[in-house]
Write a protein that binds this DNA or RNA. Structure first.
Length: 498
RNA sequence: CGGGGCGUAGCGUAGUCCGGUUAUCGCGCCUGGUUUGGGACCAGGAGGUCGCAAGUUCGAAUCUUGCCGCCCCGACCA
């Protein structure tokens, strides 16, 4: 991709700058999204949204298979709700958009509209940064007995967090996501739910996005505001920075207590309800880009590609175009019957070479070209986006061949990303090596940590690396904290992160 | 919100320090023709509140002030 020469190079490492420029280039040239005129907000363009819809569909299906249903809760949260859970409000207070008035009027000087000072709200409304509070305020009315439990609800929604610095898909002031909010009668059941949803996310990331992830739990310092335990999936981007791709929180009884949600159990005993919440966002689009894309543009794994196969005719004159595109339409029908999405680009507006480059930029997994030569010989030229490999093959059983090629691409993308990710995990046993690896190689660093928040914060302040997670099922291994030398029972994963 | 950089046509840009005819160039776009197996070529053409506002000046893309936005770093975060 071409580099943006206009960006300043002062005080920025070339690697970071180049990678940012590359990322922005892909987002823009693959037609995924653009900055809105509204500060920090993003316009998701049709191609970007089509990929998001594929993600939504797959996730939604997985949620339903695990017993969840969808519902919708208000965009506005009364300020008093948000402040009921102390840690929660502290975590989000700094980035909330607040509605203070409900009416405009023409200004006295005739120069447009102003906020009508008379229309001030009694209580300000916060635009949801997340919906725990409004949902738990609602659940209060729904739950009396263990017979009302569990409640397993998901919501597809937008939320607003007034971020200081934004980046398309990765961090925008408004973003689309899903948030699951469940209520349970026991701690064990709630923890099981939290872990189950983490598995759903990991499966989605690996099987649909072809993006390997590490499941783990967050340190206390990185925990969700209001949670007892935050589980996460962490992915590794091509520039060596980690990306938190999804989180699942065990909320304990914190929100039940804050909103006074009690139920009578089967023994007639009154207790607070146990809660979870979990979410993934359009940030996954950023993850997708930074996991697979290359210098030719976007690479979309077949299972998330809105168009999986594009047919490009090569021809001279209208007759030849007609003949070839008719043949292509037959293949299209045949493939569509087998659930493959196909585009035949028989437009005469661009030359084949232009189309080849364009569909590579857009990330279409498979391209099939048919020219006069192929038409003669009953062959096609088939090209795969992941490796760039092209070959000419007979037209017989084309549909089967394409289906198996799509599977192969899906698998290959995962394998490639996994090999890269595995290579980006480095075991380190002292602080000097830690800093060296961080600066020279990046990636995850598996190191011993004494478990204290002070140590974590000091490492962060000195190196910008944070504890991404304590991997689930990490082997017990006695060692010494790289910073303090105190005893540690297992390694945790550090990285610089998005 | 702090530091740095930037804002000129759809995109990328020259010009700004040192104010002065009709604002430069490339890509893209439109028309005609030739082309079409990896982003074609030739000829002609259209497209601009120089981010916004105020000020200085005979005159502002250029100087001053304020504001807005974008990029990078920091803090924060999914």
């Amino acid at each position: 991709m071409s580099k943006d020469n206009s960006t300043s190079t002062k005080g920025i490492t070339p690697r970071q700058q180049d990678y940012s420029a590359w990322y922005n280039d892909i987002v823009s040239k693959a037609d995924l999204a653009e900055h809105s005129d509204v500060r920090g907000c993003m316009v998701i363009k049709p191609h970007g949204y089509a990929i998001w819809e594929k993600m939504q569909a797959a996730l939604d299906k997985m949620f339903k298979e695990t017993g969840h249903v969808n519902a919708y809760f208000p965009l506005f949260i009364p300020k008093s709700y948000l402040s009921k859970e102390a840690n929660h409000v502290e975590g989000f207070a700094k980035e909330c958009a607040v509605v203070t008035h409900y009416r405009l009027k023409n200004s006295a000087d005739g120069k447009g509209v102003i906020v009508d000072p008379e229309a001030k709200l009694e209580e300000e409304l916060v635009v949801r940064p997340t919906s725990e509070t409004i949902i738990w305020n609602t659940y209060k009315g729904w739950i009396q007995s263990y017979r009302d439990l569990p409640i397993l609800i998901n919501q597809w929604a937008n939320v607003v967090r007034w971020e200081m610095r934004t980046r398309l898909f990765l961090r925008t002031a408004e973003f689309l996501w899903q948030e699951g909010h469940t209520a349970h009668e026991s701690k064990e059941e709630a923890i099981k739910e939290t872990e189950q949803m983490l598995d759903v996310y990991a499966n989605f990331a690996e099987n649909y996005m072809a993006m390997p992830v590490i499941k783990g739990i967050k340190s206390a310092g990185e925990r969700f505001a209001g949670a007892e335990e935050t589980y996460c999936i962490e992915a590794m981007m091509q520039d060596g920075k980690a990306l938190q791709a999804g989180t699942s929180h065990f909320l304990g009884q914190n929100f039940a207590k804050a909103f006074d949600v009690k139920f009578t159990d089967s023994n007639g005993k009154l207790d607070y309800v146990w809660a979870t919440s979990w979410g993934v966002s359009t940030r996954l689009m950023g993850a997708l880009i930074m996991t697979h894309s290359d210098d030719k543009g976007l690479v979309i794994p077949p299972r998330l590609a809105p168009i999986q196969v594009v047919f490009v005719p090569i021809y001279k004159g209208a007759d030849e175009l007609k003949k070839i595109s008719d043949r292509m339409q037959q293949f299209k029908l045949e493939l569509e019957k087998k659930g493959i999405s196909v585009k035949v680009d028989d437009s005469d507006k661009h030359k084949p070479g232009w189309k080849f480059a364009e569909y590579e930029l857009k990330g279409i997994p498979v391209r099939v070209a048919i020219g006069p030569r192929d038409f003669e010989n009953n062959t096609v030229e088939i090209a795969r986006r992941d490796t760039g490999e092209k070959q000419t093959i007979p037209q017989d059983n084309l549909a089967e061949k394409i289906i198996s090629l799509l599977d192969d691409i899906q698998q290959n993308l995962f394998n490639k990303a996994k090999a890269f990710r595995d290579n980006m995990i480095t075991k380190v046993d002292n602080y000097e090596d830690f800093k060296k690896i961080l600066d020279e190689k990046g990636g995850f660093i598996a190191a011993h940590w004494d478990g204290s928040t002070e140590t974590e914060e000091r490492i962060k302040a000195e190196t910008k690396a944070t504890i991404r997670c304590i991997p689930l099922g990490a082997a017990n291994e006695n060692g010494k904290c790289i910073l303090t030398g105190k005893a540690s029972a297992r390694r945790v994963l550090f990285a610089r992160a998005y």
